[in-house]
């Protein structure tokens, strides 16, 4: 059995995962450039180097993500919805629901016991409820996005952001900064606003347990916690790998099935 790969070209980050016998042997995350083909190549090259092999060693590659059609080295492409579902259930076998929050959209996915897609909703109407929202707010707060979650956990008195619109929420955050509210309280407010937005979509799909979160925003503990609280449900954490890699992992798992079948 040779190795298989999954490559997920997202709007903000491109991810590649290489698997052998359904074990992850290499993974890479690079920032997406203007050309999806080049980003895919860069991520894959990094992963290949890590695995110590070449493209010819990859028996099958499934591409996914916004720029998937541009990946030159893939055998097949699948939607990131299927891939996130697949990857999440591989990591958390009891998962029936997946909330994936990426850079520019948010997806809520329901799965059956076999990991097949039952139903999904996506938000790509605007930036609220996506990673972009957090990025913008972090910038206003002059902190790294990664800090948003940790800081928020320290908050004892979160602010209420009146607006969910990315533009107006910025003004709101500035208002709180000027009122000298502690950064952790503002961070907690930002996370709660984000979580409210996502919870509405999740509730529309009537999520069943267990729920897990994938995508870059899953790394933000503040959002995960707020989301669980608002929905009144516990969200299982993905510990084995970076949650941002789950789409690429799912793609690699599909590749593995194809390779086995061929």
């Amino acid at each position: 059995m040779r190795m298989v790969a999954g490559c997920d070209v997202g709007s903000l980050a491109t991810k590649a995962v290489i698997m052998e016998r359904r074990r992850v042997v290499a993974a890479a995350i690079v920032r997406s450039g203007p050309k999806p083909a080049a980003s895919a190549q860069a991520a894959m090259d990094q992963a290949l180097a890590q695995a110590g092999c070449g493209l010819s060693d990859i028996a099958y590659c499934v591409g996914t993500g916004y720029g998937r059609e541009k990946i030159s080295f893939m055998n097949e492409s699948l939607s990131e919805i299927s891939c996130h579902g697949k990857g999440a259930q591989f990591l958390v076998p009891s998962a029936r629901s997946v909330i994936d929050i990426g850079g520019q959209d948010c997806k809520v996915i329901r799965l059956d016991a076999k990991g097949s897609l039952v139903k999904f909703v996506t938000n790509d109407k605007c930036a609220s409820g996506t990673g972009r929202f957090l990025e913008v707010m972090a910038k206003v707060l002059n902190i790294a996005v990664a800090e948003l979650g940790e800081l928020a956990l320290k908050s004892r008195d979160p602010v209420t952001l009146a607006s969910m619109c990315t533009v107006w929420a910025q003004a709101d955050v500035i208002k709180h900064i000027n009122a000298r509210r502690p950064a952790e309280d503002i961070c907690a407010g930002v996370n709660a606003a984000m979580a409210n937005r996502v919870a509405m979509m999740a509730n529309a799909l009537q999520l069943e347990n267990d729920i897990c979160m994938t995508g870059g925003v899953a790394k933000n503990k503040g959002v995960v916690q707020a989301l669980g609280r608002i929905m009144g449900k516990r969200i299982k954490e993905i510990r084995q790998i970076d949650p941002q890699l789950v789409g690429a992992l799912g793609a690699a798992l599909f590749a593995s099935e194809k390779a086995t079948k061929n």
């Binding site: 009146a162 607006s163 969910m164 619109c165 107006w168 003004a171 709101d172 208002k175």
Partner: peptide
């Protein structure tokens, strides 16, 4: 719905 534009704005 104050979420659309805050009253302050």
């Amino acid at each position: 719905d104050g979420r659309v534009e805050s009253w302050e704005a």
